[in-house]
């Protein structure tokens, strides 16, 4: 009997030692706790800081300081948008409050010229998405004369939405690790991983097919530089860098027990290539020294070269990683006996 008692834990230990790669549940937990949640908290902090900067520095104050705060807020929110368009809050609603693109400059002009009292309540409840958010703040502060009240109202709406997002992830669920519950409620770990990888793929698709590709004409009949969401601050490349950096952050959250390590345990060459392509994409995007719309207009081939890297990265995620992790993107594979 005692031998049996010894054999059971020994066998369990042996099996554990046979395990290759990190535990998937732990990977999901790390994605949430070390990847997504810090990004969401940073976004809430940075958008709040932008509101403070506008309220204290406008009018007539430190516009450069506000511009820096705006860039930080845009970077932080773009990171969330690129990696966590799922979860307990409706990201579509949050984005419509924080950073809807494209904005409507003429719509904002009309609103400013009207007799309406443009406050946070108006922008949140009676205005269209194209007249609020970070894009509208950039427009009213840096494209036209400093419209501080409008900017402050838009910043208040954005702050409120990002705080709601943070609350939804952190506080709506009781328990020791509420954010993980929020992420994985009613999900298996493959489903949760499918959501994360799906977010990456959608972000890269957006860049490749609908924004940068459309700007150069490689994914549209005619080149249209306005497809790149970029305003007076010329922060187009900053947005895309934020997206790539966020993808890298989430991939590597948890280190040896992270998503990239999990992919590596299934096929090291795929993980190496993902890492390499992400680095190459960031290098190429960082090299654009002027506003991205100008790059698209003057040297579209440079952007197309960047998009080749993005296309390869997307293909790796959409085909190889989906296969390696046996996940589905955007739907639940129910009742299936195919394959």
């Amino acid at each position: 009997m005692s031998r049996v008692l010894l054999v059971v834990p020994a066998l369990a230990l042996l099996l554990s030692s046979c395990s290759t790669g990190p535990d998937q549940s732990l990977v999901v937990e790390n994605i949430a706790s070390e990847g997504l949640i810090p990004l969401i908290e940073t976004a809430a902090d940075e958008v709040t800081a932008l509101q403070t900067a506008i309220e204290s520095g406008c009018p007539g104050g430190d516009l450069d300081g506000i511009a820096n705060a705006w860039r930080s807020a845009a970077t932080a929110y773009e990171a969330v948008n690129a990696t966590a368009p799922f979860g307990p809050a409706s990201m579509a609603r949050t984005t419509s409050m924080v950073d809807y693109q494209p904005i409507s400059p003429t719509g904002i002009d009309d609103l400013l010229a009207s007799d309406e009292i443009v406050d946070a309540d108006y922008l949140e409840n009676r205005s269209s998405s194209t007249r609020r958010g970070l894009g509208s703040i950039e427009y009213v502060l840096f494209d036209i004369a400093a419209e501080c009240e409008y900017a402050a109202a838009a910043a208040e709406v954005a702050t409120s939405a990002t705080m709601e997002l943070r609350s939804a992830w952190l506080e709506s669920f009781e328990g020791a690790a509420p954010f993980i519950d929020a992420f994985t409620a009613d999900m298996t770990s493959p489903e949760a991983l499918g959501d994360v990888v799906g977010a990456f793929v959608e972000t890269l698709k957006e860049q490749q097919l609908f924004e940068l590709g459309a700007a150069t004409g490689s994914t549209s009949q005619e080149a249209n530089v306005d497809a790149i969401p970029e305003g007076a601050l010329g922060f187009g490349s900053g947005r895309y860098l934020a997206e790539l950096a966020a993808i890298e952050t989430v991939l590597k959250a948890g280190g040896e027990s992270g998503l990239l390590a999990l992919i590596e345990s299934r096929d090291a060459s795929v993980a190496t290539d993902i890492d390499g392509l992400l680095a190459e994409a960031q290098d190429r995007m960082s090299a654009f020294s002027m506003p991205l719309q100008e790059v698209a207009e003057t040297t579209p081939t440079q952007i197309d070269a960047y998009l080749e890297v993005i296309s390869e990265l997307r293909s790796l995620l959409e085909a190889d990683v989906v296969s390696l992790l046996d996940i589905t993107l955007g739907f639940s594979d129910s009742d299936g006996d195919t394959g």
Partner: peptide, 20 residues
């Protein structure tokens, strides 16, 4: 060989599934 490691978080048998 692709599918089983994706189930490696199953209770008890999970680690075994990750073995080629």
């Amino acid at each position: 060989a692709t599918w089983l490691p994706a189930r490696s978080d199953l209770w008890l048998v999970g680690p075994l599934l990750a073995v080629p």
